[in-house]
Every structure is written in structure tokens, then in C-alpha cells.
Amino acid sequence: MAGLEVTGLGHAFGPQPIVEDLSFSLPAGSLGCLIGPSGCGKTTVLSMIGGLIAPGSGRIDHAFRHPVFVFQDPCLLPWRDARDNVAFGLKATDMDRKTRRSRAERLMEAVGLAPEDHGKFPHELSGGMRQRVALARALAVEPDLLLLDEPFSALDVGLRRQMQSLLRRLIAERDLTALLVTHDLAEAVRLADHILVLSPSPGRLAASHTLAEPFAARDDGFVHCMVNRLLADPATAQALAMET
């Protein structure tokens, strides 16, 4: 099955190049992690793939019809309750309000939000619940490509683990392809099938690693060993030097 193919991608804000000659591919149905130091253009790459920014140079080829974003900040509408927030993306379709809301209900259950929370406004929900709402909102539009921009970085460790498991489960159940931006190598090792390491600004592909172990087998010991093994690779260690 065709996946995502990025060839010679470049982008600059004014005279400052942010991303330069970036090439990588991601098979469909897999989870890729873009990792790199702050300011290396990870979010810019994600925005270009999702069509929010036009690429300065290079090509992005994929056959995905519904790419969708999950941001670091859940970006919920404060004046809409959780149900209407989840249904928000569906307003781009011709679905009527009742169908939108019933689909939102189903997805809120899928991401583990209790029925009594469905009518709550964002300020009445905890950080983890807000991120679940954002995830449900993304899944509601039935995407085939999930673009996740550090979605769990604001959560505490326990909550982050829960959300990581949920994400892997949803990706498997729904046969999604996902590209996740993170600056945390341990998170990448825990989640990814493919780790794409970007160099400091301007971002280029410094190294790429493929992990074959099933998600269930990736316990703390595995993550620890694998992080050390990846950092033994000079290109990866050099690219992430600012973070480690």
C-alpha cells in the first residue's frame, strides 16, 4: 500500500531556511516519529504535509484523502461543550447536527470519556480529558493520516502512558497511518515503527531507524536499552545533542 513520500522538501521563513532537502518515506499503516532539537522545523514539516503551509521546494506525495491534526494544545473551543467540540470537524461535511452529535458520542466513548463528561465545557475538564476530546475530534472525521504535533508533551508521565497506549490501539483498530512530532526519544522508541531524526536548523534527515518490536513488548527496559542503542549511533547522538 502506498504511504507518504517526502522528497527534497524545503521551507524558509524569510531569509532563514527552516527545513532543507528533507527526504523520507513512511509506509501506510505505520507510525512514524519525527524527532529533533527545538527549532529544527518539525512542526513546519507536519504543517506542509497536512497542507497548512505550501512547501518552499521539493515534493510531498501521498494518497491520503483525510489528513488531520492533533496539536500540542488541544485547541478546544471554550464556548462549546466536549460533544460539540468533537463534532466540530464534521461541520466540513454535509452531515446533519443529530448525526454529527451521535458520531461524536461514539468517539468520546472510544477514547474513554465517561458519558457525564460529554456535556462539560473545556475548562471543566482535566488536561488529559481535553487531549482525549482533541483526539476524538480528529478521529471523528475518519482520517487516514494522523498528524500529531507533540500531543502528549503537556501531560504528566502516567497520563502520557495512557494516551500513548490509546493512540497505538486506535491506530491499529482503524488502520491509520500516523506521523508524530516529538522531542522525547523515549516517547519515539515507545511508539514508533520508524524514527526519523532531524538535524538542528535547518532540518535535514540525520538518521532513520526502524523498530520491529510489537508495541505490547516495549516495556521500560526495552525503551531504556533502545534509547541507549540509538544514541550510540553518532549521527543520531549528534542531531539530538541539544536535547540529551
Partner: peptide, 15 residues
């Protein structure tokens, strides 16, 4: 960030 989120879902201008 809300504007960016709304754009990412490609909702119509009226929404």
C-alpha cells in the same frame, strides 16, 4: 491556535 485548528479541519467560512 484556534484559527489554525479550524483551518486544519477545512471547515467552511460560515462555520
Amino acid at each position: 491556535s484556534l484559527r489554525r485548528m479550524a483551518r486544519s479541519f477545512r471547515v467552511p467560512a460560515t462555520t
